[in-house]
């Protein structure tokens, strides 16, 4: 990376804050740390960080409220740091505008991968370059959005209309978790029943068509209780 991307860490736990900061600095990022929500609100407009890492449990305010407030005036990528075992707050965070989430405890490689994805998505958005995508390629999966074509290992995969819509939606935001509600609204419309049964049956069919072993998927990953994530494109 030629210019150092700036990352704001909003986390009240000093040990975790320290570990993230050290890791990020070692990986050539510029790091700003802050411990409270109020500080974060002041720092975001003044420093314009490329990515915000936000812990949901802050001492002075609810991380979700901070998220909503920030989202009113900026679209910068926000990655939420959350506890495991709490699907509801993950979904809430994603639906309130978070770009991604990472579950405590997390390894450094996972964190770095998420940050890279977030930055790349944002650059695409800002430059308008290759967005919306015309084609998508990850490992042996190839999608041509204009021709409605899906290829695995060079072989055509026949998807139904809805299945293709689902795959393209996931591919457009590859690397990002899309929540059940988000997907249902996008595919079946805002007034569709918020029952994810149909969605999951469709996903099961897609998995059978795309994956060699549906139990050991390569392309579409399940985040139980939250949603689905497509493998990042090459």
């Amino acid at each position: 990376m030629s210019t150092k991307a700036c990352i704001l860490i909003v986390e009240d736990e000093p040990i975790i804050c320290n570990f993230i900061a050290t890791t990020l600095s070692a990986n050539n990022y510029k790091v700003i740390q802050c411990n409270t929500g109020k500080e974060a609100i002041a720092l975001i407009p003044s420093h314009c960080p490329e990515v915000v890492l936000l812990d949901l449990g802050l001492p002075d305010m609810d991380g979700l409220n901070l998220l909503k407030e920030v989202r009113q005036w900026t679209g910068i990528p926000i990655i939420v740091i959350s506890e495991r075992d709490d699907e509801k707050s993950k979904v809430l965070a994603l639906d309130s505008g978070a770009d991604d989430y990472i579950t405590k405890p997390f390894g450094t490689s996972e964190l770095l991968a998420r940050i890279r994805t977030a930055i790349r998505h944002n650059t695409r958005l800002e430059t308008g370059h290759t967005f919306p995508l015309n084609t998508f390629k990850a490992k042996d999966l190839f999608i041509d959005f204009n021709k409605h074509m899906v290829n695995v290992n060079g072989e055509d995969v026949h998807l139904t209309q809805i299945e293709f819509k689902l795959v393209s939606l996931l591919a457009q935001s590859a690397g990002k978790v899309l929540t059940y509600d988000y997907i249902i609204t996008k595919i079946w419309g805002p007034f569709a029943v918020k029952d994810n049964q149909i969605l999951r049956v469709n996903m099961a069919n897609i998995r059978r068509k795309l994956e060699k072993n549906p139990v050991d998927p390569e392309y579409i990953f399940t985040e139980i209780g939250v949603g689905y994530r497509m493998l990042e494109d090459d």
Partner: peptide
């Protein structure tokens, strides 16, 4: 709540893989 069996199994296996990358797991 009714959950698709394969999704639960998949997530479990993914998490084990993360912890034991060299294990030989078959499902």
């Amino acid at each position: 709540t009714p959950e698709p069996l394969e999704e639960v199994v998949t997530e479990a296996i993914t998490r084990i893989r993360k912890r034991y990358p060299h294990a030989d797991i078959q499902a």
